[in-house]
């Protein structure tokens, strides 16, 4: 019996695709899991679970440890040990819970003595925590010396809802050329004399900038370069050391390239 052409061609096509499929299944299989984003809304969570989730956020997505430490002074920010009890005494009439939430969402509203206003709003890029995460984080901070009493409803509904999907890290596209910016950093700008940035530079005079894009907005970086004192002096570092005249010595292009480069440091 003659095999119909359609059958032969079909079998051949299936064989070809089968081979590709087999091969694709035989090589290492790697999935891409979304970074765990906490969603506790609607679920029943115990305070202990909440605190644990908050601690996790503190260490990972929150990137808080780039500035803060618990039990010692951080690189750029105050020691957070005991914040749970201290928080209730900062402003008369403000509970610990309210102060902590305010510190996270409007860090500039009250500045800790001796520290500049450099902490980013945690629900905005680059940190961009969602509502659940802010809730858990508050619980964690309360647990450092205080009592955990925060409810989801204490966190404003607008938190983390900025971008349509929540938890956004809107990738801003800067016009500068990061490669050229690196050259400014090591050359003309002379930043390398005082800063470390990943593999380049080692100077401890100014803060380590290796992860600066994780914790700071382009806005801040731009301000800091033009007006170091006006942007606030990073705690633990001497005032007036970072030169104030970059606004004069760098061209507009140098400046944009430099910022673009700094934004790659994460």
């Amino acid at each position: 019996m003659r095999v119909p052409v359609a059958v032969k061609v079909g079998a051949f096509a299936l064989f070809v695709m089968g081979t590709y499929t087999y091969y694709a299944n035989s090589i290492p299989q790697i999935q891409s899991k979304p970074p765990a984003e906490l969603s506790l809304e609607g679920g029943n969570v115990t305070p202990a679970q909440l605190v644990k989730a908050g601690e996790e956020t503190f260490k990972t997505k929150g990137t808080c440890e780039i500035c803060h430490r618990i039990g010692q002074k951080g690189t750029r920010a105050p020691d957070l040990a005991g914040i749970g009890s201290r928080a209730g005494k900062v402003k008369a009439g403000q509970s610990a819970k309210a102060y902590i939430i305010e510190s996270l969402l409007q860090p500039g509203a009250h500045l800790v003595e001796g520290y500049p206003n450099i902490m980013p709003q945690v629900d905005k890029p680059p940190i961009a925590l969602n509502r659940s995460e802010v809730w858990a984080l508050t619980a964690f901070l309360e647990s450092l010396g205080g009592t955990v009493d925060v409810k989801l409803d204490d966190i404003p509904k607008t938190v983390g809802a900025g971008a349509a999907g929540g938890g956004a890290t809107a990738e801003l596209k800067l016009p500068g050329d990061a490669k050229a910016g690196e050259a400014i950093f090591t050359g003309k700008g002379g930043c390398i004399a005082c800063h470390k940035a990943g593999k380049i530079g080692a100077s401890p005079v100014g803060p380590d900038l290796s992860q600066i894009a994780k914790i700071q907005t382009p806005d801040y970086l731009m301000r800091k370069i033009l007006d170091p004192a006006g942007a606030g002096t990073v705690a633990g570092f001497p005032k007036g050391v970072m030169p104030p005249m970059f606004g004069q010595t760098l061209t507009a292009k140098d400046y944009m390239d430099l910022v673009a480069f700094l934004m790659t440091l994460k």
């Binding site: 499929t21 694709a24 299944n25 999935q31 979304p34 969603s39 938890g167 956004a168 809107a170």
Partner: peptide, 20 residues
Amino acid sequence: GVMRDSSVDAVTPAIGYAAN
């Protein structure tokens, strides 16, 4: 970077699955 996939399918499958 703007709108997150928060559905149950947010995991991007491995190549074998995709090939099938």
